[in-house]
Design a protein around this nucleic acid. Structure first.
Lengths: 145, 145
DNA sequence: CCTTGACTTCAAGTTAACTTCAACTCGTAG
DNA sequence: CTACGAGTTGAAGTTAACTTGAAGTCAAGG
């Protein structure tokens, strides 16, 4: 028996609903082979791929950005630990930036919010891009975008 | 001339679209007095309130949570610097937690993603709540929720 | 008096990330 | 042979956070 996973198994193991997995596939985040009956079968490595997606979401990336990140993995062969390590490494700057943002926020929050500079425009905190307006429509989630 | 702001002025100064300001009002995040003609007029302190909303969003809070946070401010009088400082302080734990999450993520990412534990379930990273499933419908934005 | 600009409301549209539902198909156990 | 569970698709619904549009009000300028 080869270790391929059904969608149910992948769902159970990853904690991600089957419907979400199909959605990820539609979005190009994961792929599946099909049985003759048309059912999806996932290689074990998909588990790691899904894990990466969830972690990336927690960092604040959109699925589109995550898809782009995953695009750096090899299509032809199963990604090795080294492949993953490289992806993770290429990510650190982003993570670092996000952490620095929050730390700056934390460190300046009590002084800044009390001093009056939080009247916007003067303070980096509230208007970090200087042009906070026209960021495009739709929900804007969190910073770093 | 008293220093009340029109919605256009508040929008310009805060970098938040007028439509968003009306939306915030509908959501109970800010309030306005009305002129005899029915136009909104905001006290200067609203500028700070809006700033707080934006900062809070960057930390990853939903408008509902932000409304609850703002509820700790006095309704009757204009919030003082001290009021704001208290609100900011009450927030630090949340901020700290979020920062710690990201730091842990960063620090463990390269080791974790390479070692195989990122197969979910075993690793705190990908499934921090242990029960990642059924978090309720709708977009789930970022961690800390 | 008429236009202009800034404002009003209310309803409907948008994007992200999913979930839910209805209608079907398989493979297996009884 | 039939029932059952697990899987399939496509369309429609959901939530958050807004934006956009239509239709109307008001004050000031020419």
């Amino acid at each position: 028996m080869d270790p391929e996973l059904t969608i149910g198994a992948l769902s159970a193991r990853s904690g991600v609903a089957s419907s979400a997995l199909r959605f990820y596939e539609a979005r190009g985040l994961i792929q599946a082979t099909r049985t003759t009956a048309g059912q999806r079968r996932y290689p074990r490595s998909t588990l790691r791929r899904v894990a990466f997606v969830r972690v990336a979401q927690q960092v604040g990336l959109s699925l589109t950005e995550i898809r782009q990140a995953l695009a750096s993995l090899p299509e032809s062969r199963t990604p090795t630990a080294e492949d993953w390590r490289m992806l993770a490494t290429s990510w650190r700057p982003r993570l670092d930036r996000r952490i620095a943002l929050l730390q700056g926020l934390r460190d300046r929050l009590d002084t800044c919010i009390g001093c009056g500079c939080l009247s916007l425009g003067l303070c980096q905190l509230a208007n970090p891009d200087d042009v906070a307006a026209h960021r495009g429509p739709g929900p804007q989630y969190i910073a770093g975008r």
